[in-house]
């Protein structure tokens, strides 16, 4: 398969209630494609964490999922504040989320580490004041 199957989603910012809709939709679409359930779970958890991050920190963004014959690529892009110190953000337990986010069950500093945990590769391009682009890959 040379051309990937593509899915695109706009993630609304500051709408905690609808956060996760794109990830849930991707989960259903991958099921329809007959993908391995373990792969589907890894993709949807990684994307869900990223989606929550975009809602909490970046006022939303976009999510693109590309399904190749041998891998699934997830690209999350936002125009939020950027990540000043990626090394620090990758540490489990480090979080800049506000207290109201923690009260909702998130902001434990596990988002980025979880995204790395569930994918085979993760690349973060970020610039303070410009935005963040995260590209993750799950090999099939």
């Amino acid at each position: 398969m040379s051309e990937p199957v593509r899915f695109h989603f706009d993630v609304a910012g500051e709408n905690f209630v609808s956060a996760g809709e794109a990830s849930a939709a991707v989960k259903k679409l991958l099921r329809q494609l007959g993908m391995d359930p373990a792969v589907i779970r890894r993709v949807s958890i990684a994307m869900y964490e990223g989606e929550i991050n975009m809602v909490i920190h970046a006022n939303g963004g976009t999510a693109d999922i590309l399904v190749y014959a041998d891998r699934i690529v997830i690209v999350l892009e936002d125009h939020g504040p950027g990540i000043p110190n990626v090394g620090l953000a990758m540490q489990e337990g480090y979080s800049t989320a506000a207290e109201n986010v923690r009260a909702l069950g998130f902001g434990a500093g596990m988002g980025l580490p979880n995204m790395k945990r569930y994918t085979d590769s993760m690349d973060i391009e970020t610039a303070v004041g410009v935005g963040t682009k995260i590209t993750m890959e799950v090999r099939l």
Partner: peptide, 26 residues
């Protein structure tokens, strides 16, 4: 903490929680 569920849980079928919001279901 849903972050902990996403981080440390594997193959558990039942989630017992005192947190009530749509992200628990998600």
């Amino acid at each position: 903490m849903m972050s902990d569920v996403l981080a440390f849980v594997k193959d558990q079928a039942v989630l017992i929680t005192g947190l009530v919001n749509p992200q628990v279901v998600r």
